[in-house]
Design a protein around this nucleic acid. Sequence first.
DNA 1: TTGTACGCGTTATCAT
DNA 2: ATGATAACGCGTACAA
Lengths: 346, 346
Amino acid sequence: MPEITIKDIAKRCGVGISTVSRAINNHPDINPETKNMIMEVIRTTGFVPNNSARNLKRIDAKSIAVLVKGITNPLFSDMIKIIEEETQKKKYSLVLKHVEYYEDEVDVALELVKEKRLRGIIFLGGYFYHSKEKIGNLTVPYIFSTIGTAVPEDMSRALYSSIAVDDKKESYAITSYLIGLGHKDIAIISAESEINSIGQLRLEGYRDALKKAGIAFNKNLVRCVEEDIEHYSMENGYITAKKLIESGEKFTAIFATADILAVGACRALLEAGLRIPEDVSVAGYDGIDVGKYYNPAITTIKQPVKEMAKTTIKLLFDIVAGRKSCEHIVFPAELVERESTGPAKG
Amino acid sequence: MPEITIKDIAKRCGVGISTVSRAINNHPDINPETKNMIMEVIRTTGFVPNNSARNLKRIDAKSIAVLVKGITNPLFSDMIKIIEEETQKKKYSLVLKHVEYYEDEVDVALELVKEKRLRGIIFLGGYFYHSKEKIGNLTVPYIFSTIGTAVPEDMSRALYSSIAVDDKKESYAITSYLIGLGHKDIAIISAESEINSIGQLRLEGYRDALKKAGIAFNKNLVRCVEEDIEHYSMENGYITAKKLIESGEKFTAIFATADILAVGACRALLEAGLRIPEDVSVAGYDGIDVGKYYNPAITTIKQPVKEMAKTTIKLLFDIVAGRKSCEHIVFPAELVERESTGPAKG
DNA sequence: TTGTACGCGTTATCAT
DNA sequence: ATGATAACGCGTACAA
């Protein structure tokens, strides 16, 4: 297939290549008439400039990228939307790239930087066990926005920026809240078992809260989701809660480490004939929409997604502009009491 | 920043450029020793080939793309996952591209084809009012997978392929189901007012069903979602249902044209002290997870997402391989009766 | 205002 | 097995 190029347009118009280029890129020094003529030919001929060739030449791209690991995560949608808006305001273009779960996000970033001449990168999701040397190759500014992610503490903090919620602390807070309601047998549904994962951090907060209250830790109340299906899914929350119920282990509350798991857990409880919160209280984490509209509405730790997104993009532009270097910002989350939690039974 | 290129590697290794290229691309005719040496240098030096340059040269890309309009749509996640799997099996690479709601998907496709040398395209979401001439510029095979999309009938059917569910028919089916339960005052919550949108098609099915049953059409029972917030969202379902309730108009059932709207509607009903389905029945459309786990579980029209995705990718590869030309496949959906619908009151 | 010619980083072709 | 060189399509100094 003979792809149509800028040369063909030039020939057809009886002008030079550069004139066509000028027309395409809205350059000032070009005769409006010739420009119109050229644009007309381009329209009728259906010519589309080849981006690869453009990127290859261009030094100045004015674009940043968001690398998302896990498009399924509803928290990301809101963040992306805000990042898009702010990026547009700055007259930058945004490259949104979906990273497969088996891909290394830094490798993907490295490629993308060369390909698109990026000025900066935002990492959304994924874990970050990246060697210093590899991440050192990343010559453009980057930020780990760790909603749903854990940044290992051993990573040199001067090397990167991060925006995050303190998972351990917030997890501690909601567990303490349940304890305050009189609950002692609190089950936890956790999504990951790897070290430094958010699942682990949230689990730690839970343990700390129990310890503080002098409640013995019962490992039978710690339930990890199924490995072979999507970890963060209603289905997995449902299955895991169902197993918990059928195990006969006693509990009066469940802390699901994600709202999406909480929904599934609620369903399992309801199907077992248990009332929420009269028989069992359920608390979630994240603050996504579904928790608000569920019946009963689910008590949760709400992450300030919008503020975090705004801060993320602002920080990135500050760094790009040389106004700032690395920063590590931790946002407080909010405990939202709704209908799914109440005093412990009896 | 002095970007490191293949030339630098060649110099450093004391070999020719082409040898380095061969090493990178796993070409057969290269001495394993030199290859190892080169790869080692590449590793230590952190060299990453420039994709723009590669795409510019390459004839043979073996890649296809999915253009998604509306990442929020949970239906798409499942489809994408399957498409990814199948694509990998065929040793193709997949380019996933998010199209902004204000962008023209065909324009984006046109660019992408040139940039990435695509072999085929799958359109997910979006509407398709594309002029023949414009879409005629698309020289590679493409498929409109119309889950959540309407293909205008006036489009020359020989020009494109499509995979779809008959929105009108299925909408007719679920409305008839409600009528069969004795409902006469059935409200509908619809998401779009544009002609040929799925919203409209589903509305038509609803009207047809009423007509068939001899029930007068009451325009006060047709409620369109708010324009200024995300159309397909729980929030919008909630707001719209709330307005309906407060209007005082009488109804015993609601047909929400998307499960996600149905969830919001349920919440509004429950907050108004109405019981589901005793006072009001609620039916959705789509068959997404949340409907299954909601309380009450929501009766719906379930789209065979996985089968559709499999068929889509299979058809695309068949067309790419020249085994087939255009096809238009309509899938039957399934009416799933759950807890949110019951006999009409009184 | 417009056209010519070079180079961006890579792969493919053709010698060697 | 390896190296030199011509494209790929476009932007841009520079010349006209």
